[in-house]
Design a protein around this nucleic acid. Structure first.
Lengths: 209, 209
DNA sequence: AACGAGGGTGAGCAAGCGCTTAGAGACCGG
DNA sequence: CCGGTCTCTAAGCGCTTGCTCACCCTCGTT
């Protein structure tokens, strides 16, 4: 969709759609600060300082501190939903698509765990209208995963007594990766993704290949 | 262990060990406020107001706002660890004990989800020494669950390629209940506990009875 | 009746907060 | 060479924060 998100080389560049550059620097600084200390414990002076600017510079690019959080949250949720929908729309059996969805969703939560932490755990700091907008995106993520599971059940691939409950559990499991994942830890994002894909296939009762 | 935790009637009374009564009222008010708005967004005036007291009264019973959070976190983690150890020490097969652990651990996170939210998600707001103390308790919770899984593998009941990874996933799944659980939602704590116990047994490859 | 101890309050301090404003410098079309 | 636009800063305003302090009230004991 977005042109700015990819460099000519092809590798994806996070926050590439945020312009001008000073606005992006402020946003990246805010992501780090929010992830480390939480939204409410982060000061506008801290964000500006990390971006190498004065506190007032923030207000040229963003109306309020809350708008900064909203931009982060919106972009992050868009990306998460895109990942899930891409996996759901792929070809292959329901088991393959579910494994693919979990693997890439978990990898994103591990690789970009600072961003994910803000996106997943600072929802309550948004104002009412902004929160409503984000909640709708989350509903759609839930629907994407539920769709794959539904199809797996219909095709006789899965054995799932409680589809909505299992959907919540699968998403919950993936999301919580951003809370405990540590870059210094033993596992790479790829390894966690593979482990979790296997665990989720067991949860839905997919027969092993 | 604690005498004050049980009334003569026998039903357990949360925060019964906190005395005097004014200190308990303040602590309960703090749990509610922290769970609703987060530690940093909660003011000492708000806590005191909910407890029907003046802001200064808080400092008769607690040295700082952080000490209040530490007391909550400590008592909550003690309770969580007690639940897991009780299940691990029970009799029955490893599958039965694992299901029991997940069922009661999840039930606690759903029933007392305000407390659990503070306990599980406000860890970073603690000072360094207090956090270290709590992190040790979490390590012991991890060990309790890993112990059950280890025994299940040794007895040939479970099929688990990655025991540490699966342990993290199981605990993560349970803990995250406190984030999404809603009292107005469709499911009771008992139902979520039963669902999750079943899902976890599938994750460890326990054969169904 | 006098007393000390301890739980409680009203007022307020120093510091830090989100955010605004006046103006400086850089850039650019004419 | 000018005037307008855009980005950024120094200073600071009004307010809230965590916490303190001087004082009061209610006790059980002597």
């Amino acid at each position: 969709m977005s042109v700015a998100e990819e460099t000519p080389g092809g590798e994806d560049m996070p926050w590439g759609e945020v312009t001008p550059e000073a606005a992006r620097r402020l946003l990246v600084a805010a992501v780090e600060a929010f992830a480390e200390r939480g939204y409410h414990a982060t000061t506008t002076r801290d964000i500006a300082g990390r971006a190498g600017m004065s506190p007032a510079a923030l207000y040229i690019h963003y109306k309020t501190k809350e708008e900064l959080l909203h931009r982060i949250s919106r972009i992050g949720h868009d990306k998460a939903l895109e990942i899930l929908r891409a996996a759901a729309a792929g070809d292959g059996t329901a088991a393959e698509r579910l494994a693919d969805a979990v693997r890439s969703f978990v990898r994103w939560h591990a690789e970009r765990h600072t961003t994910a932490r803000v996106v997943q755990y600072e929802l309550d700091a948004l104002g009412p209208e902004h929160r409503a907008e984000i909640v709708e995106l989350r509903r759609e993520s839930d629907a994407a995963v539920r769709g794959i599971i539904d199809e797996g059940v219909a095709a006789g691939e899965f054995d799932v007594p409680d589809v909505p409950g299992t959907t919540v559990a699968v998403l919950s499991l993936c999301i919580d990766v951003s809370r405990w994942f540590n870059v210094q830890g033993r596992r790479t994002p790829d390894e966690v993704g593979a482990l979790y894909a296997d665990l989720v296939l067991r949860m839905v009762g997919a027969q092993k290949k």
